[in-house]
């Protein structure tokens, strides 16, 4: 069902971080960009859809005070709001936002105000909703920034409180966002402008929910225990539980036109699933591939139909591709 395609070589290997792959498709320019985190830098690759040209760029997170050195990166992700696309880098000490090609930094937000190196307050989990970008933090808060259509006038509009442990991942669909944390708790929030209301909560069992997908009112979470769980986004009710992987699930993605789910894990397997909306929502197994000796840390569909997908693995400097045969 899947055929392995020629990989693209990165300038540096992928770090062992959850959700360590972001994809941005420029349909008009027939180009796709990939962002993969390597320790203190993000490697951004832009390839034409026919694969004939690849350009590489490295985006480094610079700290305003040079004394502390470069901060350790937690995540790099492109976010598309109603009026704009930006590249968000989150670090152990703050948040930086760039133009989508990584050329210019447009905003910086420090999280560790004490300035000493004996504490961190990292940011992790990024998603867009309306004109806003939401970013999770180690303290459990979710920061809501307003993003103007142009320029650098980005402002912190709102702070959502609910999580009591570090945020792992955020995802959104329409005006709804889902957030997960280190304890495995998931919250569903409904947005109106930059205001948000918590509409459902799902209690975890202490095992981190590393990654989230949201599609047609269905929430799917990937856990460090290897479980996938499917919930209703309106009620928070559990619809299905899958013993999906033998190790931690590090990333999931949903192909928005079909509801196909990709899950990748430390166990070197990628697995494909079909979501079935309903009350309660369900899930069906589709396919699996073993990516030999690669602890998978990132996985994304390239197109909304889920015909092609790409993967990254710890310590490996290639983006691996599979297409539906």
């Amino acid at each position: 069902m899947l055929r392995r395609e020629k990989p693209i070589t990165l300038k540096g290997s992928a770090s062992s971080l959850c959700n360590n792959l972001s994809v941005l498709v420029f349909e008009d320019k027939r180009q796709i960009s990939y962002a993969v985190t390597h320790k203190y830098a993000v490697n951004v690759l832009t390839a034409s859809t026919d694969g004939t040209s690849v350009t590489a760029k490295q985006v480094v997170c610079k700290e305003p005070s040079a004394t502390q050195g470069n901060p350790f990166l937690m995540q790099a992700k492109w976010v598309t709001t109603a009026s704009r696309c930006i590249l968000v880098l989150t670090t152990q000490r703050g948040i930086q936002m760039f133009e989508p090609d990584g050329s210019a930094m447009i905003y910086w937000h420090g999280l560790s105000d004490t300035g000493d190196t004996s504490s961190t307050n990292f940011a992790r989990g990024v998603t867009g909703v309306g004109d806003c970008v939401c970013i999770g933090t180690e303290s459990g808060k979710i920061l809501v920034f307003n993003i103007p259509a142009k320029g650098t006038n980005i402002t912190l509009k709102n702070t959502l409180k609910g999580h009591s442990s570090p945020v792992c991942d955020l995802t959104s669909e329409g005006n709804v966002i889902a957030s997960s944390d280190n304890q495995g708790n998931i919250f569903i929030w409904k947005f109106s402008g930059s205001d948000a209301q918590q509409v459902a909560s799902i209690s975890g069992s202490g095992c981190p929910c590393n990654c989230l997908g949201l599609w047609k009112g269905v929430v799917v979470g990937g856990y460090a225990s290897g479980h996938l769980r499917v919930f209703s986004a309106t009620t928070g009710k559990l619809g299905a539980e899958v013993t999906a992987h033998a190790r931690s699930i590090n990333a999931i993605d949903v192909a928005t036109e079909r509801g196909l789910v990709l899950s990748v894990s430390d166990d070197a397997f990628l697995r494909l699933w079909q979501l079935k909306p309903g009350n309660p929502p369900q899930i069906e197994y589709k396919h699996a591939e073993n990516v030999t000796d690669l602890q998978l840390v990132g996985g994304k569909f390239v197109d909304p139909q889920g015909r092609a997908l790409c993967l990254t693995g710890y310590d490996h400097n290639e983006i691996v591709f599979y297409v539906q045969a």
Binding site: C207, S225, G226, H227, K237, L238, G239, A240, E241, V242, T243, A244, H245, A246, R247, D267, P280, Q282, I283, E284, Y285
Partner: peptide, 13 residues
Amino acid sequence: PWGTEPPGTIRLF
């Protein structure tokens, strides 16, 4: 790993 289940089961509620 301790505390995990073997892959291969789907529980539908």
